[in-house]
Design a protein around this nucleic acid. Sequence first.
DNA 1: CGTAAAGTTGAAACCAATCAAAAGCAGTGG
DNA 2: CCACTGCTTTTGATTGGTTTCAACTTTACG
Lengths: 242, 242
Amino acid sequence: MTPTTASIQVTCSNCNLRELCMPVGLDCQQMQRIEEVVATRRKIKRGDMLFQNGEDFTSLYAIRTGFFKTCVATEDGRYQVTGFQMAGEIIGLDGIVHNHHTCDAIALENAEVCVMPFNRIEEISREVTALQSHVHKVMSREIVREHSVMLLLGSMRAEERLAAFILNLVQRLHSRGFSSSELILRMTREEIGSYLGLKLETVSRTFSKFVEDGMVEVKQRHIRILNQEALQRLVNNSREGR
Amino acid sequence: MTPTTASIQVTCSNCNLRELCMPVGLDCQQMQRIEEVVATRRKIKRGDMLFQNGEDFTSLYAIRTGFFKTCVATEDGRYQVTGFQMAGEIIGLDGIVHNHHTCDAIALENAEVCVMPFNRIEEISREVTALQSHVHKVMSREIVREHSVMLLLGSMRAEERLAAFILNLVQRLHSRGFSSSELILRMTREEIGSYLGLKLETVSRTFSKFVEDGMVEVKQRHIRILNQEALQRLVNNSREGR
DNA sequence: CGTAAAGTTGAAACCAATCAAAAGCAGTGG
DNA sequence: CCACTGCTTTTGATTGGTTTCAACTTTACG
C-alpha cells in the first residue's frame, strides 16, 4: 500500500489514542522518534490470542481498537482472569522479566494492536527521556492497578466487588468518550466471575439483586447505571476490612 | 566518617545482595556508574514507616536488611497487605506513576535500605543499558508476582492459600541462604490474613490443621515444615478453578 | 509482675459455592 | 424462515467454608 492510496496511514501523531498510550507534550522531532516504536499493526479476531503463556516475549502491544482479557493458568487447571484491557492500554508487560509471556491475552472482540518491539522501546527511551519516563509510569500504573484488585479480592464481598467492577469499567469507557451510565459488557459472566473471584452464578445473582434494588438495568450484556451513588456507596461502605 | 575509619564502607560491588538487586555481569566501569545510584542508606526501626500513602515519591529502596510489609488502605477503613519484602528486594515502585506513593511500607523488624533517587536511576539507566534492562525486569517481576497473588486470592481456599504462602516464604528465604524447611514469621496472623484475604482466626485454625495433619510444626512464629510435598500438593491439587 | 497484644479454640451465623434445571440467545444449515 | 444445537444466563435448593462473636490462653514488654 503506497502513501498515495486513499486509505490514511495512521501514525501516533494523528492517532486519537495518543494521550493514552504515548507521552504528552513532545516536540515534532521527539514525536517522530517515538513513532518508530510502532513496528506494525496487527489484527486479532475475537477469541484469538494475541500472545500466550510460554510464548517468547518480543513486543508490547498498544490496543488501538477492541477489547482483551489477560489470564493466568496453572497445569492443574486453576485459572484467573487478571485484567480486561481496552483501547489505549498497553499489554504484554508480564513478558519482560523472563523473556517469555506468563499469561494469555485473548481478544474478546475483533481488535487491532500496535506492535512495539521491546528492544526498540528500550533503545529509543534511552534517547527520548519522555518515553523512558512514560514506560516507567505505564508499568507502575499496572502495579498500582493490581494493588486495587488485591484489595478487592482480599476484602470485598460479592456485591461490593461487582459494584467496583462496573464503576471501574464505565469510568474507563467514559474517559474514552463513551457514556458514563451505559456500557456493553464484552465478557461473559464467567469471565467477570473469574476476575472478581466469584462463580458465574454469584455474578448473575448479584446483577439480579442490583436490578431489584433499582441500581442498574441489565439486558444481557447491556448495562445501564440508574444509581451510581448507590453503587459507589457499596464500594466505600465496608463494615470493616479483612 | 572518613575512608580511613575502621568501619568498612559498603558498596554495591562488595554487597552480598548484589545479584538480587543489581544487574549481573558488569565490567568495572559500569559497576562504578551503578553504585552512584545509591545515594545514602537509611535505617528504619521496627514498626516505623519507610514511606506512606500520599507521600511524595523520590526514590526506590533496596532492602539491605530487615523485613517489610506494604499495604493499601482506603478512607473507609478497608485495608490490604499487598506484599512482604525481604533483603535484596526493591520497594517503592507504586510511587512512579503519580509521583507520590499509594501504599505504606512498614518495617516488621529493624531494617536498613539503600536509597536510590529515581531521577538518578533514570539518568544512569540511559547510559548503562544493563541497568535499564534491570529496572524493567524488576517492575515486570512485580507485575507477575501480583498476578500470582490474584490467582491465589481469586481461586484458592484457605488451606491452599496458607500453604502457598508458607512455601513462597521459605523458597525466598532459602534462595538467600536460609533453611528450606524452617522459618520465623515476621508478621502477625492478622497481617498474614490480610495478605491472604482471610481473617486471623482462619489463619490460626489453618495452621492448627496443618499441625494436626503433621505437615508443619508451629511454635508461635517459628514454623518447621515437616512435609513439603503435602503442602505443595495442596497448592497444586485444585478441584477446579473459579 | 501486671497489662496489653497476639494467638487459639468453640459455636453459631452467613455468604458464596455447588448442584440442578430451565430459559434465553446466537449461529448453522436445511 | 425455522428448527436445531450449543452456549450463556437465570433462578432455586442445598451445602459448606469462612466469618463472626466470644472466651480463654500465651507471650511480650515496660
